[in-house]
């Protein structure tokens, strides 16, 4: 439900969001990228499992928590997209790393 109105730069990066490949403009935040790619949620809440999308885009609301490059609980609005980044939904509370 979002679109781009101006080419700030012609560079794009490849992202893997929920295991699907997307090309997005370089220099934008992960949250902006996820909205631009048309996703209808970034996570399910730990309390009720209800879906959320980015809300404040400035780092205060923590509604955009996602798993970025395997690290959970990242604020998607505060992280800039990088080439070949993997971005996944966060379902409920983050899981602790498994002990080997």
């Amino acid at each position: 439900m979002f679109r781009r109105i101006e080419d700030i730069g012609s560079d794009t990066v490849t992202l893997w969001i929920d295991k699907r490949e997307f090309q997005v403009p370089a220099g934008i935040s992960v949250a902006a990228a996820v909205l631009l790619c048309g996703f209808d949620k970034v996570r399910d809440t730990p309390v009720s499992g209800s879906p959320r999308l980015p809300y404040c885009m400035m780092g205060i609301c923590f509604d955009c928590l996602m798993c970025i490059d395997g690290v959970p609980n990242q604020q998607a609005c505060q992280v800039e997209v990088r080439h070949n980044m993997t971005i996944d939904y966060q379902r409920g509370a983050a899981e602790l790393p498994q002990q080997e």
């Binding site: 781009r4 109105i5 403009p25």
Partner: peptide, 11 residues
């Protein structure tokens, strides 16, 4: 912020 930082707008 979406407009300023990413030139992204609602459709």
């Amino acid at each position: 912020i979406l407009l300023k930082s990413a030139a992204v707008v609602p459709q």
